[in-house]
Nucleic acid binder design. Structure first.
Length: 436
RNA sequence: GCGGCUGUAGCUCAACGGUAGAGCACUCCCCUGUCACGGGAGAGGCCGUGGGAUCAACACCCAUCAGCCGCG
């Protein structure tokens, strides 16, 4: 029944880390190559917020990821299909991906209206304790007595309410793939359930079985269409923070012959790296692995070291829009009063367009006055920063100095306290002056 | 000159006979497959000035100063 096809993408590994799972390679897609490890830029609604595709290309982006749920609701996948598919529609010539909508089962479901992220700070994070206290329960209830959320998971799929007009929609694995087929990205993802870190083990296990069943449905459906020869399908590993479930998931999916693999779900901050390792020791080595939704520098280092090839994250753009910049000494809030008259670049030594042409004082002014250009300039910088960080990791792998690079970089980035950032900047500026 | 209205947080305005709140601005924090020009915390006022009645006034009365609007 299933049509056997060769994969629409190929993956070649050029160099591996010694004593770790990390590797550098190339993914060839119908719309061009991706040098890995690579950071994938997020353009949920077929646009990287505030950034034109020309800017994106200039700042070094290789690939863009859009979202099935959002594009299905608006403008609708048929329109995108008629207009030539995602890449043509948004005028991005390079490789594209779509996420399946599985994350929205979490963000619009268990996490909706609460202060929950897919990350918990650690094993004892109070956020993983039962959250349905009498207070939150009454606060989050609507008339019918169910918790207030706008996504609801059942055995066959997820019921979503539109965030645009409240209308009700139902995604099954097949429906998600059909939409992604129409949107037409080079790489698409299986429809999974991204579970909340607050869910107990029983639920994680139950959800995992369901996600595996859905993965099989997605694969069978996709392979039965003509799109299997032009769009690669990645299965998604889940299992929460539990070693046995993660390994079970990796085994189940590895047996399914996807074109590549996503690693999704929730992690404990302190052991995300080991969770990724559990999985990547099992997944087939010759297929690309995409760690979904990860983007903090320290997390990226851990993930690359432990064998992930692709990462996407909204952090560079969302932080940019809300006034937080990545710098080599850690993150800063550019809207802070102390930057009002700061004549320096956003991050000393940064080669991005924004840093080369604008001052902190100017960006601080744009942020404070709510100007649109603030989000654009900050996003250009943050995207450049993260994309190039991953580029540097790739280079370091090729040059056999990944671990040295990691150590030096994180020493500066993580151990630097906020208070000492300004001193460090000052010293950098002074030493740079002497060298010139 | 006469009459009326108004003086409360940086700004625009609430409130109440028992020692004041909001929005914006300000200071700072947060953001990990975007609900995202988003979320949160904090600082800030002897209620124009001087009297008076009252157990008690920002609130009532008198005077005064300032601003606005009319009529001269």
């Amino acid at each position: 029944m299933a049509i056997m096809t060769t994969s629409p993408i190929s993956f070649a590994i050029h160099k591996k880390l010694k004593n770790a799972l990390g590797r550098a390679g190339t993914i060839v897609t119908p719309h061009g190559e991706i040098q890995t490890p690579a950071f994938v830029t997020v353009g949920t609604k077929a646009t990287v917020k505030g950034i034109t595709p020309e800017m994106l290309k200039d700042l070094g982006a290789q690939v863009v990821l859009a979202n099935t749920y959002h594009l299905y609701l608006q403008p609708g996948e048929k329109i995108i299909n008629t207009l030539g598919g995602l890449g043509k529609f948004m005028n991005w010539q390079g490789p594209t991906m779509t996420d399946s909508g599985g994350f929205q089962a979490f963000s619009l479901g268990a996490a909706y209206g609460k202060n929950i992220t897919k990350f918990v700070a650690g094993k004892d994070d109070p956020k993983i304790l039962p959250h349905f206290t009498p207070e939150t329960l009454s606060k989050n209830k609507v008339e019918d007595g169910s918790p207030m959320n706008i996504a609801k998971v059942d055995e066959n799929g997820v019921m979503f309410k539109s965030i645009i007009d409240g209308s009700v929609h139902y995604f099954t694995p097949e429906k998600s793939i059909q939409i992604q087929n129409d949107i037409g990205a080079d790489i698409i993802f299986a429809f999974d359930e991204c579970t909340s870190p607050q869910e107990p083990y029983n639920y994680q296990a139950k959800s995992l079985d369901r996600t595996h069943r859905w993965a099989k449905n997605c694969l069978e459906y996709h392979r039965s269409t003509k799109h299997a020869s032009t769009q690669a399908l990645f299965g998604i590993v889940q299992g929460g923070r539990h070693e046995d479930l993660r390994k079970e998931s990796a085994k189940a999916l590895a047996a399914m012959d996807f074109d590549g693999y996503g690693i999704g779900g929730s992690f404990a901050k302190e052991d995300m790296g080991s969770a990724v390792k559990w999985v990547n020791e099992i997944l087939p080595e010759d297929k690309p692995r995409h760690l979904l939704g990860i983007g903090e520098p320290a997390d990226l280092f851990d993930a690359v070291e432990n064998g992930c090839d692709l990462f996407d994250c909204v952090l560079p753009t969302r932080n940019g829009r809300t006034g937080t910049l990545f710098t080599k000494y850690g993150k800063i809030n550019i809207g802070n009063a102390k930057y009002k008259d700061d004549a320096g670049p956003f991050d000393e030594g940064c080669e991005c367009y924004a840093c080369k042409n604008y001052t902190r004082a100017y960006l601080s002014h744009l942020v404070r006055s709510g100007e649109m250009l603030a989000g654009t300039l900050a996003s250009i910088h943050n995207l450049y920063f993260i994309i190039h960080l991953v580029d540097e990791m790739r280079k370091a792998i090729h040059e056999d100095r990944f671990f040295e690079f990691k150590k030096e970089y994180l020493h500066l980035y993580v151990t630097m306290s906020r208070a000492s950032i300004d001193t460090a900047r000052h010293d950098f500026a002074k030493s740079h002056e002497k060298n010139v």
